[in-house]
Design a binder for these strands. Structure first.
Lengths: 340, 340
DNA sequence: TTGAAAGCGTTACCAG
DNA sequence: CTGGTAACGCTTTCAA
């Protein structure tokens, strides 16, 4: 079962390899006609032969010769993470539309791993990178940028990097919206739980929370509790117990995992929302509608985030300027923030 | 910023490209010593130079020349699907251990899309494929197999394909366990809801259900309702209403999405589990512990499924026989099946 | 233990 | 419009 090459097709069709290459690379224009300097008759014949022989382009050869690969790499922190699982599908779809194949590889919140993953994909000649950087990811990204490969930062910002594209959520607005909702409905003792991850999205959501507390003149009540992935389960239980005791009546959770864990703990402790604690969660999930009371939550525009990141990247691959795009979150109301 | 090639390293180190190639491909043996026919001193010097120059292997060239690519493709139906999101991470980890990079691309339950995705990855010279085939995926797979590329079927079986590896769940056991649990706890009027997808895992789970109903001599009560992704929301509501009216007291849901939707409908209708309907769901999720009553569910060994599929595939790449591995599910008990 | 040289299948350049 | 041919960077004989 030898592999069919461009040469086989050329011989069979009685033309040169150049012609075959032209035909195989031709994009169809709006009329469905091949747009290349080849006689339409010849082109049709070549296409037919290629089809008949089962010709399949060898990307390795094309990539070696042209320096391009029609491949982009997407590097989230954790491919099994709910947020990225949703977004990756949109990215894939959008990229395919433009003829790009997508590589996924997760950095698992480790800077070392991010470095080695980036090395691996660069060795594979990817044309561009979409990265959700982890803490301390700067150096890995700087190395990538040195090779002049276009990079788009998704979801998490890192300042001071030159000519990278960015597609971000307006995280300040998200924090503000969530907090304002609680305050508007009569909850004034609003606190927040966050991770000590040192990523922009979390600190911006916190800024939004603080801004809302300030604007409503309840900043003296503002308080943010920090936990880590490893210790969240036990930390959260203590935080909640203590908060309820202190008369805290509202809580903003800036990620899905925090929301899920808080709800779990509250159920375990027999606490009700909004009676014992009003809640605003983050990201979409079945849990918000299946919990005893439906839970209000911030929704990110996954589809746009995915599409825009591909769009910005492909623009950059084609030599255009790096853009920064900031998208607005929306609010999905549930019973967990009902008027006091 | 010209790219550093093997030749640059050779020149700088004062050796031939052959030597550099040897050194760069050498695996370290157990003593950490390079295992190749090169003078250790020379090797060290080459390594140092490569490091200093920032040499990075060009996979396209290597792949073109050697025919291998150190890349495997994973093609689930939907990369954002909960089950595959979890498993893909294990696959990636396991593959990286053996020096393989992973391509993900979803077929989105469409045979056409599966065909084009397989074409794309084959054009990228992948060394092997892990596929969760969709309905009517046979022809796409047959085409792949013609190229002699090793293929492992994950989660869903297709019969009659020659020399493909398989890593499957014992779906009959899963259906049986779930049903038996309900029967053992006093529910005898047990029904099931499934999709009309025509994939092996669902039909095997149904076989397990039927077997359990038969073994317990309540087969006259056995009944399976079918729905589709598109119509599930409304179908399920009608099915549930009707079932409760007819005195059905137990329900087995053979996928996560069916479980989530049934719980949503039950909440909407104000039905309690197990009082109105005892439930056994599928796959792990936060929803099972956050629902008013915790929900019993079948758990798949994601980690083993992922690891084994990589293991079987790499064995095949190395020329070994295609294996079939069937893994056992486990049961996680909740309040939704409490003794009647 | 080392090196020279022949491709792998494409694309890109240049000439007709 | 068409065709010849030189790269692309690497692995892999084969010979020294």
């Amino acid at each position: 079962m030898k592999r069919i090459t461009i040469r086989d097709v050329a011989r069979e069709a009685g033309v040169s390899v150049t012609l075959v290459s032209f035909v195989m690379n031709a994009k169809r224009d709006k009329d469905g006609r091949l747009d290349c300097p080849v006689n339409p008759e010849t082109a049709k014949r070549v296409l037919a032969v290629a089809q008949r022989l089962g010709y399949r382009r060898n990307f390795a050869a094309a990539s070696l010769r042209s320096g391009r690969s029609n491949t982009i790499a997407v590097i989230p922190n954790d491919i099994s993470n709910k947020f990225f699982a949703g977004i990756s599908r949109c990215i894939e779809e959008e990229a395919n539309k433009s003829g790009y194949t997508v590589f996924f590889a997760s950095s698992e919140e480790s800077a070392d791993r991010l470095t080695s993953v980036i090395d691996a994909v660069l060795a594979h000649n990817v044309d561009g990178l979409i990265v959700a950087p982890c803490t301390n990811g700067e150096s890995a990204l700087t190395r990538a940028l040195e090779t002049k490969v276009p990079v788009v930062l998704l979801d998490r910002d890192i300042e001071g990097l030159d000519s990278v594209g960015k597609v971000l959520l307006d995280d300040v607005a998200a924090g503000q919206m969530a907090t304002q909702l609680l305050i508007d409905n009569g909850y004034r003792n609003v606190e927040m739980i966050s991770y000590t991850l040192g990523i922009s999205s979390l600190s911006e959501r916190e800024n939004g929370y603080r801004k809302a507390m300030m604007d409503n003149e309840v900043y003296d009540k503002a308080r943010v509790h920090y936990t880590t992935y490893a210790t969240a389960a036990s930390d959260i239980e203590n935080i909640i117990k203590d908060a309820v005791e202190r008369g805290v009546d509202g809580l903003f959770l800036p990620t899905y995992s925090l929301s899920a864990q808080v709800l779990t703990v509250m159920k375990k402790l027999g606490l009700k929302t909004p009676g014992d604690l009003a809640i605003v969660g983050f990201d979409e999930s079945d849990i918000y509608s299946l919990y005893e009371t439906t839970v209000s939550h911030i929704v990110q525009p996954l589809k746009e985030l995915g599409e825009k990141s591909v769009e910005v990247l492909i623009d950059m691959i084609q030599g255009k300027e790096a853009q920064t795009i900031v998208l607005k979150p929306t609010l999905k109301l549930g019973g967990s923030t009902e008027k006091k």
